[in-house]
Design a protein around this nucleic acid. Structure first.
Length: 885
RNA sequence: GGGCGUAUAGCUCAGUUGGUUAGAGCGCCACGUUGACAUCGUGGAGGUCACAGAUUCGAGUUCUGUUACGCCCACCA
């Protein structure tokens, strides 16, 4: 790594980023290990799907985690960020299947279980690391030596152990229940994997003839094709219209079956005809009715949701939607279809297949979550775990307090195979960590577990659980979790339950929910819309630091982000600004010894501007630390941005050019102060922009060749630096006066490059002394040929001059008669009216007895001071008006 | 049906416990390359803080209601 060297004119990120990332990684700077001398700080990454490729959601999420990690590392914590990937059962299985199909190779069914799984592992070896490699481009300080995969042997062991424990406790059981079935993936899903969408459907009214020929019952349904599974028609027990029919039979059209009319409160007399068809095998409500009345359950569907032979020869094998059309047509032919109404209703879709799911009865494995939820609810209720933004706790409580049994079995192959064995001869079921040793004809359960059944153990399984490792002892519980609110049920809630159950300890203390990223017109980013930029392209174009900074800067708290690539210009420009201010510093001379501390420097010699910037930087140091503690990343980014651009570059460095020109001691002192604040700024910014800050810290000689800014101390608010606060107001006022002076120039169409004379009349002796001390700085900032400062009024005999007020005094731009007196009068008159208006409202407030009585003392004092100020300024405006007439 | 969020400048958004004349970036207008930076500088225009009430000495900020948009949850045929 090169030491102090001359920076090129523009920052080129690509080389810098590659160089530093390799250097950090090769020097194991991301690795944390149990260290009794330091407090621990750990984060587990939300493991991206092994099939995943990096998208902007990952960028935001991982940048935030990286900020936390680097901040804490610089604060003196022993940090470890546990990275890894998720095996993502259904997603990966279908991905590999698709790949095989594209290559024309034998697919899943041809290969059979073992060979197919081998293929998946091969695929994973070849492509599965993509997202992990991509994350490195972003600069993430992941502890790569601890990378895990949810199907690693250790993690699989943890999964089996948890399954067996919960089975032995009676929480996990196998049973026939209503589940959600995805006809595309051909597997059961959990309730959370069903996405409800509003769709336009049709409401079919069908007549079921009474067997005795005395008439019809009309039922209404959105799913006429399920009628083959009907085993009753229900009416409300108190419904007078149908009371006499209860117990009678109706003929089920298109079949040769007769089904009973039953009385059940599920039938709502207000709705439709008040009669409802009961299909216990395909509807959760009907299932309940069926249980109450001991009705038969007829499953009429195959795994792909085509109808089976229970639907009769004519319909067997038909797709469910084709069957619907045919059923309706047949009923119409028979005169049994009375009407079709349009209806808008919510239909459950499977996330993966994007087709409507089927609810049907199936034998699956379930986990009863009721008891697991209790301590997890308490942990959040009692504040042991905090959510940011806090409101997500409501969502969490609502779900947890109504938690349902979790369907954990999946009819796929890629995943943790359920550690249950059946003995078909005896009917025995064995559940254990290892296959049964008892003699007999045992066959293992074919199903695998829901992917989340391994993810929920992630915070401790990555640390080696169930072994009692040093890592667990030191790094568990983790500190913070950063994730999207969309997986609060899937993952966050379940991790809390798993932590409480198996570790007897919460898995993390804070959960920060990120925003969702949308495109510039508010649409969700998606591949199919083509509005999802590839972050690697963005990094190529703007740089990783620019992307990181921009996305944090524009991320509103707790709301969706509107993103477009152009917005990365903000970060790129900021990086360039930082680069150039450092470059400017270098052009003034070699490094000083004061970049770490101003100790040894004669503080009494500091200029007002120097005291001012030291205090301003110190303020921001304080607020950034506070913001980060409260997960207000966006505020921190704004504070640093404003500090660097406005205070450091626009004001301080410009003002300090006076000192550089002066040379000698003044220059030496200025360089010391610049080094001091620049190194602070670089450290402050490092968690946000790791690459450029590392580069600059080395180039400027602030960090030794073999060291990293990652290990430098994060700046903290300090009292010594706050001493300059006294002078801050005066310097602020000086800068305000400069702005006013420049506006006078601009108002007279005098270019910034033309040197002109200014006259300043100070408001009093004290301000006069201050202004005199700032003469050189004023001259430079105003680009003036001369600045005359005095207590005396402006000498009108030199010709009228446009003027502006400031708290320190009145600034004039003498133009030797070039001034448009009338225009100046109009301007001043307007000011006079404004001041009078403000004074009036201020006086009204101060004469209000209730204000004086009830407002805090300080507010009243401020108001009085403000009124005095307004009056003083009004007096000056009046003088100016008089002087023009 | 229940819950949550959002509404501030042309656009995207700040505005932490209520307290001077409401801010930034982008865009727009004018001027400017005085050797850090045109990925820049200087100055400027632009807002009845969605609407209606209430509380208060004082409301962009608190409360209630309304409207619009968005999200989540819910078995309604």
């Amino acid at each position: 790594m090169s030491e102090y060297y001359q920076l090129p004119k523009a920052y080129i990120p690509a080389d810098t980023e590659a160089k530093w990332y390799a250097w950090w990684e090769n020097n194991h700077l991301f690795h944390g290990k149990p260290n009794p001398d330091k407090p621990a700080y750990s984060i587990v990454i939300p493991p991206p799907n092994v099939t995943g490729i990096l998208h902007l959601g990952h960028i935001l999420n991982n940048t935030l985690q990286d900020i936390l990690i680097r901040h804490h590392k610089m604060m003196g914590y022993e940090v470890s960020w546990f990275p890894g990937t998720d095996h993502a059962g259904i997603a990966t299985e279908s991905k590999v299947e698709k790949t095989l199909r594209q290559k024309g190779e034998p697919g899943r069914d041809e290969l059979g279980r073992e060979k197919f799984i081998e293929k998946v592992w091969e695929w994973r070896k070849q492509y599965g690391g993509t997202i992990i490699r991509q994350l490195r481009k972003l600069g993430t300080a992941c502890d790569w030596e601890r990378e895990r995969f949810t199907m690693d042997e250790g993690l699989s062991h943890a999964v089996r152990k948890v399954f067996v424990e919960l089975y032995n406790k009676g929480y996990i059981y196998r049973g026939q229940r209503m589940i959600n079935w995805c006809p595309v993936s051909r597997t059961a899903l959990s309730d959370e994997e069903v996405i409800y969408k509003e769709v336009d459907g049709k409401f079919y009214h069908i007549k079921y003839p009474l067997v005795d020929g005395s008439g019809f019952l009309e039922v209404a349904t959105t799913r006429p094709e399920t009628m083959f599974g009907d085993t009753a028609v229900a009416v409300h027990p108190t419904d007078e219209r149908y009371k006499h029919l209860i117990g009678k039979m109706v003929k089920l059209p298109l079949t040769d079956r007769e089904i009973p009319i039953i009385a059940d409160e599920h039938a709502d007399p207000e709705k439709g005809s008040g009669c409802v068809k009961i299909t216990p095998a395909h509807d959760p409500n009907d299932f309940a009715v069926g249980q109450r009345h001991n009705l038969a359950m007829i499953n009429i569907m195959n795994a792909d949701a085509s109808l089976n032979d229970k639907a009769g020869a004519e319909f067997a094998g038909m797709d469910r939607f084709a069957a619907r059309e045919k059923v309706v047509a047949e009923l119409d032919k028979l005169g049994l279809l009375t009407k079709i109404e349009p209806i808008r209703h919510a239909v459950g879709f499977s996330e993966r297949g994007d087709v409507p799911i089927e609810t049907l009865i199936s034998r699956q494995w379930f986990c009863n979550m009721k008891e697991l939820a209790k301590p997890a609810i308490a942990a959040v209720r009692e504040g042991k775990i905090k959510f940011y933004p806090e409101r997500w706790a409501k969502t969490y409580f609502h779900w947890m307090e109504n938690i349902q049994d979790w369907c954990i079995s999946r009819q796929i192959w890629w995943g943790h195979r359920i550690p249950a064995w059946y003995n078909d001869d005896t009917g025995e079921v064995y559940v254990g960590m290892e296959p049964p040793t008892a003699p007999g004809n045992w066959r293992q359960e074919e199903d695998v577990l829901d992917t989340w059944f391994s993810s929920w153990l992630w915070p401790f399984s990555v640390m080696g659980w169930p072994e009692k490792t040093e890592e667990l002892k030191y790094f568990y519980p983790t500190a913070d979790l950063v994730t999207g609110p969309d997986i609060i049920f899937f993952w966050v809630a379940r991790m809390i339950m798993a932590g409480c159950e198996f570790m007897k300890e919460i898995p993390f203390r804070n959960v920060y929910f990120t925003s969702i990223i949308r495109d510039e017109i508010g649409r969700k980013l998606s591949k199919s819309l083509g509005n999802s930029p590839d972050p690697l392209d963005v990094i190529d174009e703007y740089g990783a630091d620019a992307l990181r900074f921009s996305i944090i800067y524009i991320a509103p708290v707790g709301m969706d982000i509107r993103y477009s690539n152009e917005r990365c210009e903000l970060g790129r420009n900021f990086a360039n600004k930082l680069w150039n201010v450092c470059r400017f510093r270098q052009m003034q001379g070699g490094p000083t010894e004061y970049y770490k501390s101003l100790d040894g420097l004669d503080k009494s010699a500091l200029t007002a501007d120097e005291q001012w910037i030291i205090a301003k930087v110190n303020d921001v140091v304080g607020s950034v630390n506070t913001s980060l503690k409260e997960f207000r990343f966006h505020t921190a980014a704004h504070d640093i941005y404003d500090l660097v651009w406005s205070n450091v570059c626009d004001w301080f460095v410009e003002a300090e050019k006076v000192q550089f020109r002066a040379g000698g001691e003044a220059k030496e002192r200025a360089l010391a102060v610049v080094d001091y604040i620049l190194f602070k700024v670089l450290r402050l910014l490092h968690p946000f922009m790791p690459f450029i800050t590392e580069e600059l810290a080395h180039a400027m000689g602030y960090v030794a060749e073999d060291a990293s800014i990652m290990n430098a101390e994060y700046p903290q608010y300090n009292e010594a630096d706050a001493e300059g606060e006294k002078i801050v107001a005066d310097v602020d006022n000086k800068f305000a006066m400069v702005t006013a002076g420049r506006a006078l120039r601009s108002g007279c169409n005098i270019g910034d490059n033309k040197k002109v004379k200014f006259y300043i009349r100070a408001v009093n002796e004290e301000k006069l002394a201050f202004l005199n001390s700032q003469a050189d700085s004023l001259k430079t900032l105003l680009n003036a040929s001369e600045v005359e400062i005095s207590l005396a009024d402006y000498d009108r005999s030199q010709g009228a001059a446009p003027s502006a007020l400031s708290n320190l005094g009145t600034i004039y731009l003498p133009l030797a008669g070039l001034i448009d007196v009338e225009a100046e009068k109009v301007k001043l008159e307007k000011q006079r009216v404004d001041y009078e208006k403000w004074i009036k409202s201020s006086e009204a407030k101060l004469s209000n007895e209730r204000f004086l009585a009830k407002a805090p003392e300080q507010v009243v004092a401020d108001a009085k001071a403000h009124l005095a100020e307004l009056k003083e300024k009004l007096a000056r405006v009046n003088e100016l008006i008089d002087s023009l007439s």
